[in-house]
């Protein structure tokens, strides 16, 4: 059986296409488990996982926690709001204190790009990146690609995927670019120039500022949230103007002479980047994404735990 090539999941940049395919294959079997009356396997029995969230999160945290519980792992949760981080403790001290309680794996969300890479250089546990600032959010990209695969078939070679919105402040976008490019897709970034990093095209990503043109071009439109909380400078004049020129409605999707898949990593700003009728339309697979999130994260946890077993010799 093929094995995962990395000790951690720090980002999609670090994993191979084979790794991605392996995650998908593993997720297929876990998805099947999730359809059973008792949605649980003993795969991670005896493994302790710490969920460290230094930034707010609802769906990612719940998704990971469910994935861990479905795999029978022991979990412990930590959030920055109620921690000694507020008292000035360093990340290394915080994590080492938790690891001293014999934790095997760490799922972490952190506002600083590279926080996971930094941690991986200093601690022994397997680390899963649940979002590091404006860098990567690998499990989101994996569940996105997995969901696209369900719609368009296993081979995504040549499929056209557009990602619209605040690419500049998005970790989801960067992980998606890496993931989709590795799977052979054509990728486009859509948004006003102020929200697109200048060197995007060097990643092999097309750039478009017209949402209509992008919709005509793509097979899948993945819409990102406008992240006002990560903008210390105003990059767009107003949500109203953004909504007028970049917001997607059901009518816009219906008038295309083709099928189109609509995605969003959540949480949605209804009436800003997506109109309610589009969210609730048959084009949307937004809730499938959420469901696939659990299966994909189970796959990542399982594969890293297997890898860890072979590395440290024990569970």
């Amino acid at each position: 059986m093929p094995v995962f090539s990395q000790d951690h999941l720090l980002g999609i940049k670090h994993i191979s296409r084979d790794d991605i395919e392996l995650i998908f294959k593993t997720a297929d079997s876990f998805k099947e488990v999730l359809q059973r009356p008792i949605k649980r396997t003993p795969s991670l029995t005896g493994i302790t996982i710490a969920n460290l969230f230094f930034e707010n999160s609802t769906r990612t945290r719940i998704s990971f926690e469910l994935a861990e519980k479905r795999l029978s792992a022991d979990t412990v949760n930590f959030s920055a709001a109620s921690s000694s981080v507020k008292k000035g403790e360093t990340l290394l001290d915080t994590v080492n204190n938790i690891l001293a309680m014999k934790v095997d794996m760490v799922v972490m969300r952190h506002p600083a790009p590279g926080a996971h890479t930094f941690l991986a250089q200093h601690i022994d546990a397997s680390i899963i990146n649940a979002g590091d600032g404006t860098h990567e959010h690998p499990t989101q990209a994996l569940l996105d690609a997995y969901s696209i695969r369900e719609q368009l078939g296993e081979n995504l070679e040549g499929k056209r995927i557009a990602i619209a919105g605040d690419i500049m402040h998005s970790r989801v976008a960067l992980s998606n670019f890496f993931c989709l490019k590795k799977l052979g897709c054509e990728v486009m970034a859509v948004g006003p120039p102020t929200l697109l990093p200048k060197y995007l095209t060097k990643l092999g990503v097309q750039v478009e500022h017209d949402i209509q043109k992008a919709l005509q071009w793509c097979d899948v439109m993945n819409v990102l949230r406008i992240q006002l909380e990560r903008q210390d400078t105003k990059f767009i004049p107003s949500l109203r103007e953004y909504s007028k020129y970049y917001g997607i409605s059901k009518a816009m999707l219906d008038q295309l002479d083709k099928e189109i898949v609509l995605m969003h990593p959540g949480p949605i700003n209804r009436g800003v980047e997506l109109m309610s009728d589009a969210v609730d339309s048959h084009h949307s697979i937004i809730l499938d994404q959420v469901q696939n999130g659990v299966a994909t994260r189970m796959a990542v946890l399982y594969l890293l735990a297997e890898r860890r077993k072979s590395r440290v010799g024990t569970a």
């Binding site: 790009p113 590091d132 404006t134 860098h135 960067l174 200048k198 060197y199 995007l200 060097k202 990643l203």
Partner: peptide, 8 residues
């Protein structure tokens, strides 16, 4: 390109 890839 590096800063773009690192999200910095």
């Amino acid at each position: 390109l590096q800063s773009t890839m690192l999200g910095l």
